[in-house]
Every structure is written in C-alpha cells, then in structure tokens.
C-alpha cells in the first residue's frame, strides 16, 4: 500500500469498524431482549421515551407518528406509567410499493418514575405525532425548600 492511499483506506476501515460495532449492538439487543428484559428503562422496547421533571410534574414523551389516540392505551400506578397500543398502517391495494420503511405493529412499555405521582391528575395529549404525558408529583416526591432562619 502506498502512503498516499492511506487516508481513503483508513476511512474505509473506520466505516467497516462502525458497521461491525452496530452489528454487535444489534446482536446484543436481540440477546438481551430474550434474557435480560427488564420491566422498566429497558432498551429494545418501542416506543423510545424521554423523561424529564420540573418542580411539580414528571413529563414522559414519546414519538408516535401516525398513531391515533384511540389506538393508544395509557395507565398509571403510583410510580409508573404504561404506554401500550398499536400502530396501524393501512395496506394500500392495487399499488406498487417503491419503498416501505415505516413499520406497523403493537407496542407496550412500562416506565418507572423516580418518585410517586398523583394518579388522579395525570394528563396525556398527542400533538403532531408526539405523545406527552404530564404526571403531577405526589407531595412526598416534591422538592421542598427549607427556609433558613437567621438568629
């Protein structure tokens, strides 16, 4: 190999490495799904969610494009939320498909929250294909500010 050929082949090698890494990750995902599946925070379960908090609420968000609200089922316990449902993509008849990348199917996901919530006041909304669940914190889970008295 000539020295000048280095940068190109090096890049190729890195790409190859990256591909291998991805394949390993996929393999491990399949493996972990069978054996190590955890009820919460587990990778390999659809949909992917983001969880955040402020002083009063926890927020759970998921990308669910094309999922109708009536196909979604959300239930809560004192410290977890379960999102389940089905994504339906109608099969078009008498057409020829050029590309089919979007997937349909069922999903279910349990998300354990870091604290207790007030289950009575949970709100969920779907907007532009993004599901947002607002879970008000129970009094016990709220951060309390302690006033310091000067003496």
């Amino acid at each position: 190999m000539r020295w000048t050929a280095w940068p190109i082949s090096l890049r190729g090698a890195f790409e190859e490495l990256d591909r291998m890494r991805q394949q390993m990750e996929r393999l491990f995902e399949d493996f972990s799904e069978g054996i190590l599946r955890e009820p919460s925070f587990a990778a390999g379960v659809f949909p992917l969610v983001n969880v955040s908090e402020d002083n009063n609420n926890y927020y759970v968000r998921a990308e669910l494009p094309g999922v109708r609200p009536e196909d979604l089922d959300i239930s809560v316990t004192a410290d977890s939320v379960i999102i389940s449902g089905e994504r339906r993509i109608p099969e078009e008849e008498n057409v020829s498909y050029h590309r089919r990348e979007r997937e349909a199917g069922k999903f279910s996901r349990v998300i354990t929250l870091p604290g207790q919530i007030n289950t009575e006041k949970v709100e969920a909304k779907c907007k532009n294909g993004i599901l947002t669940i607002v879970l008000p914190k129970a009094e016990t889970a709220k951060t309390k500010k302690i006033a310091i008295k000067s003496e």
């Binding site: 494009p65 993509i89 078009e92 498909y97 532009n128 294909g129």
Partner: peptide, 22 residues
C-alpha cells in the same frame, strides 16, 4: 425521515414520518 412510497395508475404517494413537525 422514514418513508413509504407507492405508485398507483394516476399518482405517486409519499408518506413520511416526521413527528414533532408543525
């Protein structure tokens, strides 16, 4: 974005998942 593209006699239809876009 993930897309589905299909063709009928009269048209080509593109469906693209773009969650969060207004």
């Amino acid at each position: 974005p993930d897309v589905d593209i299909y063709e009928t006699e009269k048209e080509i239809v593109v469906l693209a998942d773009m969650p969060g876009v207004t």
